[in-house]
Amino acid sequence: MGDRARKDALFAEFAAVGKVLGNPKRLELIDLLGQGPRSVESLAEAAGLGMSTCSAHLQMLKEAGLAEARREGKRVYYSLAGTDVAGLWDHLRRVAQRHRPRTELARRAYLGPEDTAAVDTDELLRRLARGDVVVLDVRPEPEYAAGHLPGAVHIPLEELAERIDELPRTHEVVAYCRGRYCVLAHDAVRLLDAEGVPARRAVDGLLEWRLAGVPIEVDAA
């Protein structure tokens, strides 16, 4: 094999990773797996996919070396192959927003108007250490169980309106979700504001905190 063939073979390996990333639903699955391991059934429901389609996408991620699978009884659980995969996803998003103008338009259309106040990670962690903030995790239960900020109150967004009285009213509420491109915390703060509950949202979420090495608590179950 000559130098050209060897170089082509090397770049083909790089291209295999790029090819598997070139699908919006596979990127959504990577985003979900950035929250922690999850069953195929749970991923299919969260991504709005049929089981067979979801399994096929996950298998492609596994074959590309981006995801790993393990079986527990009749269920198969997937996880990212490493933190660097989450970092790749995070960097891809940043590059798209910086260099593709329509990405910002799509982000605004999805997240809604800039009508919610935000708290950066440094401030949130300082206030969490002082105990003068109520941190609210509004993600679905499987994501909360896979990892959350220590001391966070967990109320999924779809239950928040009915369970709002469970929130302590002694301190400001800071809601968080999956990360910078997740709408759940935005919608939670809009709901809380409408109910007269002082609230802001975290700028970052579990994906960014995992990458930054912020301590994350995992449920024993």
Score class of each variant (00 low, 15 high):
102 R>A: 10
54 C>L: 03
21 L>N: 10
75 R>S: 07
67 A>Y: 02
72 E>H: 06
96 A>N: 01
108 R>W: 04
45 E>I: 12
70 R>M: 07
85 V>P: 01
23 N>T: 13
58 L>D: 01
54 C>Q: 01
68 E>K: 08
45 E>C: 07
54 C>I: 03
43 L>F: 06
22 G>R: 14
35 Q>C: 13
25 K>Q: 15
20 V>F: 05
115 D>N: 03
70 R>K: 07
108 R>F: 05
17 V>N: 05
115 D>L: 04
41 E>A: 14
89 W>F: 09
26 R>T: 11
50 G>R: 03
77 Y>M: 03
55 S>D: 07
89 W>L: 06
87 G>H: 01
29 L>M: 10
34 G>M: 11
102 R>K: 12
26 R>H: 10
30 I>T: 11
24 P>I: 14
100 R>P: 00
81 A>L: 02
98 R>M: 12
115 D>T: 05
9 A>M: 15
99 H>T: 12
55 S>I: 02
87 G>F: 00
106 A>N: 06
46 A>C: 09
35 Q>K: 14
103 T>F: 09
31 D>V: 15
113 P>N: 04
63 E>T: 06
16 A>E: 13
16 A>S: 15
66 L>G: 02
90 D>L: 06
73 G>W: 00
87 G>D: 00
77 Y>A: 03
76 V>W: 02
63 E>G: 05
11 F>Y: 15
75 R>Q: 08
93 R>M: 11
30 I>Q: 10
33 L>W: 07
61 L>Q: 05
84 D>A: 09
42 S>G: 13
19 K>P: 11
89 W>C: 01
50 G>N: 05
102 R>Q: 11
85 V>I: 02
77 Y>D: 05
65 G>C: 07
23 N>E: 13
90 D>K: 02
62 K>R: 14
103 T>K: 05
103 T>H: 06
51 M>E: 10
63 E>Y: 07
47 A>L: 04
114 E>I: 11
32 L>Y: 13
100 R>D: 08
63 E>N: 09
28 E>S: 15
57 H>Y: 12
40 V>T: 14
101 P>G: 01
48 G>M: 07
98 R>W: 07
26 R>A: 08
35 Q>I: 13
109 A>I: 08
87 G>V: 00
55 S>M: 05
50 G>V: 03
43 L>H: 05
